[in-house]
C-alpha cells in the first residue's frame, strides 16, 4: 500500500485558514489501511479543526466525505457535488490522490492533509515499513525477495558495506541490514550463488530518474 501520515494540525490550520467552507475528503483504500486518511481520520480531523478554529474565534464550515479511491475518476465524481459547494478541498489522499482530485476540479484549491511517505506494509500492528521504491525493473527474484535498493541505506547491489554489524545497519540502530536479511534468506533457499556473481550497475531509466513515468496499456484504450 501507499503509506502516509497526517500533517501536523498547525500546518493544516495554516493551509485552510483562508477558507470559510472546507471539504475534508478521505480516501478509503491505502491511507485508510494505514490510519491516515480514511473515514475515521476524516471525522477526527474535522472535529479537531472545528474545535480549534472555534477557540480562535474563526468561523468555518467543514464538510466530511470519504470516497473509495482518490486516484480513480469513477470514485472522484462521487464527490463532485460536495466539492462544488465548498471553497477548498483538504484531501486526505496520498500525493497521487491530491493531484487527481486537482486534475478533475480545475477551479478549486486542493490542499494536502497528509505527507505521503512510501510504498510499504504494516509489518506488525502500528509499524509500517518501506518495501519498494518503484524502480520500474523488479529484481527481487535475485535477492530472495528482499529489495536492496529500498532497504539498504546505500542501495548497494553487490553485498553489504563495512557498516553491517549484528544484523543492524550503521545508519540507524532500529534498521535491519537488508544485506544480512538477503544473505540469511538466500542461504535458507540454497541460492547464495545468486549474489556471488558481479551485479552490473542498475539502469535507472525505468525509475523516476528517467523523468515522470507513463504506462500505456494499448489493450485498455477505448
Amino acid at each position: 500500500m501507499i503509506v502516509a501520515e497526517q500533517k501536523p494540525i498547525d500546518e493544516i490550520k495554516k493551509m485552510v485558514a483562508p477558507y470559510q467552507k472546507l471539504l475534508i475528503l478521505g480516501c478509503g483504500t491505502c491511507v485508510k489501511t494505514c490510519f491516515a486518511g480514511g473515514e475515521d481520520e476524516v471525522a477526527v480531523l474535522a472535529s479537531a479543526l472545528r474545535l480549534s478554529f472555534k477557540k480562535d474565534g474563526k468561523k468555518i464550515e467543514i464538510e466530511e466525505k470519504t470516497i473509495e479511491r482518490q486516484c480513480e475518476n469513477e470514485f472522484i465524481q462521487e464527490a463532485a457535488s460536495c466539492v462544488a459547494r465548498n471553497q477548498a478541498v483538504l484531501s486526505l489522499g496520498c500525493g497521487a490522490g491530491v493531484q487527481d482530485i486537482a486534475r478533475q476540479f480545475a477551479k478549486v484549491p486542493v490542499l494536502p492533509g497528509l505527507n505521503t511517505t512510501f510504498i510499504g506494509v504494516q509489518e506488525r500492528p502500528g509499524l509500517f515499513t518501506e518495501e519498494c521504491v518503484g524502480c520500474g525493473n523488479c529484481e527481487l527474484a535475485l535477492y530472495g525477495g528482499i529489495c536492496p535498493i529500498t532497504r539498504c541505506s546505500k542501495k548497494l547491489l553487490n553485498g553489504p558495506c563495512g557498516g553491517s554489524q549484528n544484523g543492524i545497519c550503521e545508519v540507524d540502530p532500529s534498521v535491519e541490514c537488508a544485506w544480512q536479511l538477503i544473505i540469511d534468506r538466500l542461504k535458507t533457499l540454497g541460492q547464495l550463488d545468486n549474489i556471488r556473481a558481479y551485479i552490473p550497475p542498475k539502469d535507472w531509466r525505468s525509475s523516476n530518474s528517467g523523468g515522470p513515468r507513463k504506462l500505456v496499456r494499448e489493450d485498455h484504450i477505448i
Partner: peptide, 22 residues
C-alpha cells in the same frame, strides 16, 4: 576497501573475491 570485522563474516570473503573480480 575490505572490512573483515563487519557482518555477516562468511560473506566478507565472498565480497573480497567479488572486488578482485570487479
Amino acid at each position: 576497501a575490505a572490512n573483515p570485522f563487519a557482518d555477516p563474516f562468511e560473506y566478507r570473503v565472498i565480497r573480497l573475491a567479488k572486488k578482485i573480480e570487479a
